[in-house]
Write a protein that binds this DNA or RNA. Structure first.
Lengths: 184, 184
DNA sequence: GGGCTCATGTAAGTGGTTACATGATTAT
DNA sequence: ATAATCATGTAACCACTTACATGAGCCC
């Protein structure tokens, strides 16, 4: 009964209260997504597996509005979540960054194109940062003081800002370098 | 004939000269690995696919030492590589960070445990940073001035240093907070 | 002789995405 | 009326990892 990390995301979200698969996905999209994404195709089957394993319990929501199935943690599920949180290393870490990959191999590219690449990497991280900044008010309301979710959100913003800064610096250096080469 | 990103890693590595699958893997492990990893189980089948697609050409190495198959780029392969490098967005970006995930859900954990988690995240990033620092001399010799691979390596070091710094700050703040709570 | 590195590969499995199908309810 | 949102699900596919099998040549 070893679970995927995404299953723990589900358990974690359910600890905040009863949720449907749809709600879990919506929550993930405004919180863990930038360091742990999840799709419906992952969440719905995982919910069934977790239920079969006895870690969550689902029931058709009584309200006769729409067909929906709400899940909640069982004691076993709470335990499993706690055990995972307290477990030691290893901690799965993986980065896949096509921009850096291209940059790595960009030696053959003319400076203008490398500059364009750097710029589009920056723009993409700016987009994500802006998204995270938009989430901030919501998290600040939901979680009063400097809670873990807020701390992680702040990290996310700083993280993307760091990359943006590096891009800017590198763009500037490249521009200057190209200019001085042109002069000579 | 759309290729996986890892296939482009192979093409990129082959532009530097003839290489065996084994050599490509070794190169990846000391260069792109921290932002784009690749395993034998990915590389060998990809080499066959790329050859079938006419983007690379392989031949049994003449030297009668060991059984080995060296690959080189074909003109079509060079073109494909160049086209990928020059293509615009989107740029695949994905981060999977179990440490942040746990931290996000760590509200139920006692401060001491959250501190331990933070610490193990930091230690892990320190490990990776140290690895990258070890690669630096090799890259500096292979690539004279501030080349793309060196720039990306420097980014990698700064990247992990950034995360390490954030962990340290957060650990410190958490420690102080806990101490002041104990006093009151 | 034994262990290390070089070297090639594959089978099974994992963890995930994408795209689609379906349909009810709500807001405009 | 119609578009958006809520809601559940699955099939096909994808990229990738892990673990294993195999063997040659090299260094002590």
């Amino acid at each position: 009964m070893d679970l995927s990390k995404t299953a723990y995301v589900i358990l974690g979200m359910l600890r905040m209260g009863k949720r449907t698969g749809y709600e879990i996905k919506s929550l993930v999209d405004v919180s863990t997504r930038f360091f742990w994404a999840a799709s419906y195709g992952q969440i719905y089957p995982d919910l069934k597996r977790l239920e079969k394993a006895g870690l969550i319990r689902g029931e058709a929501a009584e309200t006769g509005e729409r067909r929906r199935r709400e899940y909640e943690l069982t004691p076993a599920g709470e335990e499993a979540l706690e055990a995972w949180l307290s477990a030691g290393p290893p901690l799965h870490f993986e980065l896949r960054h096509e921009g850096l990959l291209r940059l790595f191999f960009s030696g053959s590219l003319p400076a203008a194109e490398r500059l364009g690449l750097l710029r589009s990497i920056r723009v993409e991280h700016e987009r994500v940062r802006d998204e995270l900044v938009d989430f901030k008010p919501g998290v600040e309301v939901a979680e009063p003081d400097d809670s873990s979710p807020l701390a992680v959100l702040k990290f996310g913003i700083a993280y993307h800002e760091f990359i943006i800064g590096w891009c800017s610096d590198t763009e500037r250096r490249l521009t200057e370098q190209t200019a001085s080469e042109k002069r000579s």
